[in-house]
Structures are given as structure tokens and as C-alpha cells.
Design a protein around this nucleic acid. Sequence first.
DNA 1: AGCACGCCGACT
DNA 2: GTCGGCGTGCTC
Length: 802
Amino acid sequence: MKQIAKVIVDVPAMQTNRPYDYVIPLNLVQKLEIGMRVEVPFGSRSIQGFITEIVDDSNYDGELKEIVRPLDIEPVLTEELLQLGKDMADRIYSYQIYCYQTMLPTMLKAKYSKEFFLTDEIEEALWFDLFEGQDTLSWERALEKGVLPQLLDLKKREKVDLRYLVKNQVKSKKIKVYCSAMSWLQIEEELETLPKNASKQKELLHALQKIEDQWMTKKEFQEQFDLSAQTVQTGVNKRWLKEEEKEVYRDPLKNHHFSQTENKQLNDAQTEAFNQVKEAIENNEHHVFLLKGVTGSGKTEVYLQLIGDVLKKGKTALMLVPEIALTPQMVRHFKERFGNDVAVMHSGLSAGEKYDEWRKIKRGEAHVVVGARSSIFSPVENLGIVIIDEEHETTYKQEDNPRYHARNVAIYRGKYNQCPVILGSATPSLESRARAQKNVYKLLELPDRINAKAMPEVQIVDMREEFQENNRGNFSRVLQEKIQDRLQKKEQSVLLLNRRGYSSFIMCRDCGYVLECPNCDISMTFHMDTKGMKCHYCGHEKPVPKTCPKCAGHQFRYYGTGTQKIEKELNELFPEARIIRMDVDTTRKKGAHEKLLDAFGKGKADILLGTQMIAKGLDFPNITLVGVINADTSLNLPDFRSSEKTFQLLTQVSGRAGRADLVGEVIVQTFNPEHYAIEYAKHHNYDGFYRQEMVLRHHGGYPPYYFTTQITVSDADEKKAQVKIYEINAMIRKQMGEGTIVLGPSKSSIAKMNNRYYFQLLVKYKNEPRLHDVLTMILDQSQKDNAKGLYISIDTEPVNFF
DNA sequence: AGCACGCCGACT
DNA sequence: GTCGGCGTGCTC
């Protein structure tokens, strides 16, 4: 019987966000499966697609085309992931094709190209001129040579034609391995014929007799039998050794050795939490647990033992960690417990390494996946538990299309697989904590640090007083004293620079002019390393102006506290101190992050100065002082979550001090010492903060009391974007019910980015069954606008407000 | 997203 | 009268 494949094609548009039917050619009938990538003709092109279904007949009126070829031998998406992608696209107003592509390593994304080829005889001179003696000519090359019009003309006269190519990028790493090419007897004969003084070669032959048909690399050969590279090469040249290519995984951790660790004894609270989740595992029940444990309360050990439990049942485990917390230290915990059964996925891996880790998971060679946001899509089967550590982190929400939240995907997969989901945090998001309050999630608490150590003492320093006392620097006198004290005691200090929502800029001293990016509507950032100005949004760079563009003044004042500036100040205050600076600039290179932390851990520096990235996963015993240089830059952002984020950050860094037998101390410098987020952080009082913040959210009508959806319109023409947002605004307001609040429309706070103008609208609602249809309709109708360069984007539950 | 088809202005 | 601009709609 004729088989039809339903295919989601690689065309990201609302009109093509549905399966297209294709005939499966006879020779592929048994070979194609759902979840495979295929090449299909689409219009006049040839593109990639995903088979989502295989059926017997089609409703399509026209003539069906055939699938050209499969791009995989095995499916790359499981049935679960296919379903997930479909549901997800609908919920977050994205396209299925975007969702599927996000689920896969970039290596599995097809590359497209097109080339000209001859269909008829043309003049030899002309052919040579155009095709340079080749059969085909790529579109790019034709463009480069400026012969595109000529070729298009030939195409019109049917002398040449265009061919569309879909290139599969998949490349496996291969290494050469060697094996003896001779039998024992042959080797004996060979030994006879060798001259007496060929002692090394004799050694090699004896070695060959020992290994029989075992394959190994040259290097392994050398090491095992203590031979030189030259000797082995002689063996290869004399054909004593045969050569073969073997596919290997790129192993980013090959130079690391992990010793096995055993389960640690759990304390009462840990045991209680463990048992509750274990029960869900045993009964194959889906529950969401909110594991609230202060820093150092041993959440990780609970995770490890639960994963161990899941593995014993023959199932798999998914563990999500924020990208910046995915440090070698963190990974080590898992590798030490589960060895090679762990696959690690993070942004530091090359495309090839990511693909290999992905394949290990896909083939069931790794049953535990530890990774950042996108690892939630790992192709694991038989899922037994999903853990999201630091669940409050906003990095779990992807900021561009598809705008998914890993936490929601986790819960989806937990339901699908009937397994528990654990959301862990010392400072849960208000949303999650509120759900636990309503018993939607089960609350599990680890209230104490494992070693029964008290939380560090937090001292708040009022920087306004420092200013009045004429201390204009970034270090209060108290903090200076404490740092000096640690230097003497040979203990380590960590200094955090809160850079959220913050940038350094320059201002004219005469007229107050601030240098702005010509493409975007924000001030440009001054960079110490290049001594130039840079725009954070579009990357535009220019030198610091000599004179003010507005008033021609010569004097500029440099504002802001970049890490480099603080480091300089620190150097002047403590010339003898050894400082490690950690920020985007010093950690850009691969492995730099690890190196710096490692150096600090080994005591090669006295002070670690850094941005947000040092707030997590730092676990060194010798740190007894944590200083927060500017607690409140994140407090005054136009974002209803600014207090929550500040509280989380302060609590997070406080946990870094004094974990071992040394007492920790925390100094928080601020201009708002009486702010409740800072007050509650000082007392390590999450519950107090939660209650107060909930009251404010209730008054303001914000999550978790309301759901939010943001609609953004952008266009190169400000007027067009504005007209469109008002149009949408009118439509939404007409359709929405009583309890729904629509804020805006308004200009985005960064109204212009990359020469595009942004307008937005925020819908706050408790129960709005029609919203989904209205928004889907708006997207359906946006096709023409899209073609003209006007974009509409819909963000459900946005986490960052511009 | 591309690409073809189709309807209007500027020109050989 | 034709070339080519872009606006519109379709792609199994």
C-alpha cells in the first residue's frame, strides 16, 4: 500500500506551521520512521523536514510529491519530543519547526545552497568563462563574480538550471586504530629474516604476538609496550600493522579523572525529602516537588541519591543547572557518582562535542544528563526524574523564539513519563512558592546547613554615610578593614559587583551629553580594554570622542563601575593583594572560567572579584569574607521582579561565605539600607520576604496573582510599528473580559534597537479563555506584515522587562 | 523564508 | 509596446 509521510517543513512561518503530505518512495517504505529528518521538494526548492506521522492516505487534492531522501538512519526525535514540540509551539506562539530545531544539536540543522548546472550545449568560451571548467557553479560564486544576471538569462533560455541542495552537517570524529596484520607464525618468520641489530623492530613484533586481534591507537601501542613513535610507524610502513578508522566520541573531559564516591549519610530533613520523592518514583507518579533548601543544606546529595535510585530502576534522569552554575566543580559531583553514565551539555562545548554527548544520550549510553536550559529536550527515554536546580533563575526562560521556559517543559515531560519533577532552590521564585502554598506543588524543606553551621553574619553598610564622610570610592571603610584583616590572616575574600541593569558610560561635563549608539536608543558602554565605546545591543563600536558632539566641550566624566575600574581601585588600596578578576572579558576563552576558579581554589589569589557569575557554585573552604560592592543597581530597574532578583542575589552570595570550619562574614554596601529586600536578605529570612513581596504583587496585580503575556511590535519605521500596536491593542481590549488588565501600548524602554523601533503591550489576566485564540489569530494575520519587515512577537510569562 | 505570478510606472 | 519594480499568495 502507498504510504504517506506527514512532514513539518523548514519554513518558519505561520502559514507553513502544519504538516505537508509526501509520498514515501517504494525503496524507502521500510526505512523511514517518524522523527527522522528528510529532504523534500517544496515549491521550486528542496528543503529539510521532520516526519511527524506516517499514514495510508492523504486529504490533499493536488498531486503529492515524493520524499527525496532521508537525512538520518535513525529517528532524531522521539514520539514524546514530536508531541512536545507540537504542543509547545501552540502554547508559546512559536512554530513547530523552531521547536524541533531547538531540541536538536546545531549539527543536525541542515545547510542550504544552490548551484547552476548545464542543461544544454553552450559556447565553450562562455562555459569556461562562467563555470571555470567545472560542471556546476554555486550561487554564491556566481554572485561573487558578478555573473548572476548572465546565468539567470541562460536559465530563462533553458541552457542552465538551478539545483537546490540540502547539506547534512553531521560529522563524526574518527581516529585511526591499528591491529596486527599477521598470524603468530607469520611473525615468527618475520623475526627470522630481520637483521640481528634490529632490536626495536623485534620488540614490536613480540608485542604484536601478544595483542592478537586487539585494536588500539598508535599512542596506546607506544605506551603499552614502551615503543617509540618511529618504531610503530615502521610497523605500519612494513604492513605488519593494519589500519582502520574508528568512530569516537569527542570527550571534553578526557583529561579528568574521577574517583568514585559513595552515598553520604542523609540527615533527617534530607531523608524526609528523599523518601517523599522516592515514593513517587516507586509508584510511577507525577508530582512536582519544590525543594527549598538553604545554601549548604545538601540539596545536591539528595539529588544524587534520587538519581541513583532512578538508575537502579533502569530509568533515566535529567538534571538542569543554570549555565553559570555548570562549573567543573558541579559536574564533578555527578561524574564521581555515576561515572560515564553521565552526559554533560553546556555552551562551552564545541558543536561536535555537543553532538557526541547528544548521541550518547540518544543511544542510551548515558542515563543521566546534566546540562543547561536546552538539555530539557534531551532525547532520553524512560525518564524517571527531572530536577531543576536553582529553579528561580530567569535563564531557564529562553529570551528569543521559541520563548519556552525549561520549568514548564520539565513539568510536561514529567507528566508524559509519569515521573516526579523537583524544583530546587534556596530562594524559590514567587510563582513556585505560591504554587506550593496552594498544594499544586509539594513543598519539601531543608532548613539547616549540613554541618549545623550558622548562616554567616551579614552587615549592611550605608554608602550615603560614606559619601557624606567624603569617601568617594567604591569601598567603604568597613569593607576595607575587613579585606585588610583577611589578607593578614591569609584567608580569602570574594567581591561581587552587581552589574545587572548597569553599564558604564561617559557624559560631557559641560552640557551633560551622554554618548548614544546611532542605531539603538541607549547609551554606549565604555570598555577599558579597548579604550573605546561599544553598544551592548547591536555591537556598534566607536572611539571615545575628543570633543562633545553637542557643545564641543573637551571634558568627559566617566561614570560606572566596571570590574576593571574596581580592580584598579583595589590594587591601589591593597598593592600586595593578589586579585583574580572574573567577568565576561576574562572568561570569554574556552576553559578560562575553570582555570580562574581553580587557581583561586588553590589559593593562588587573595581576592576574587567578579560579576554575577561568581555567585554560584563557588565552594571553597577558605573564603571567609564576601563583599557586595553595590547591592542596589538591580533594585531600581523598571521590572516588578527587581526586589526578588536582588533578594535572590544577596542570599546567593551570602551562602558563599564560611562553609567549612571558618566563620563567614558578609558585607553588603548599599544606598538603600532600609529596603525590605536587603533587610530580609540580611536576616536570611526567605519566608518574610516572600510574604511581603506577595502583598506587593497582589496590590500591583502581578504574578503570581496574574498571568502575563507581552506583545511586542517592531519595525524600521516608527510610525508603522506604532499604528500596528494600537491596532492590536484595540482588538485585544475589545475581546478581553472584565478581570483582565491591558497595560500600554507603550514604547519599549529601549525604544530603538539596531535601527528598529519597539512598542509593547502587556496583558495581565487570571482567567482569559479567549486570549489564546485572539493571539493565534493575530499571528495568523501577521504574514503580510512579516514580509514587509514588521515583526510581532508574543512572549508568555516574560521574565525580563525592557 | 523564497519564489512565481501579476499588475503598474519608466524606458528603448 | 516591453522591462522590471514590488505587492500578494502559495508551497504537499
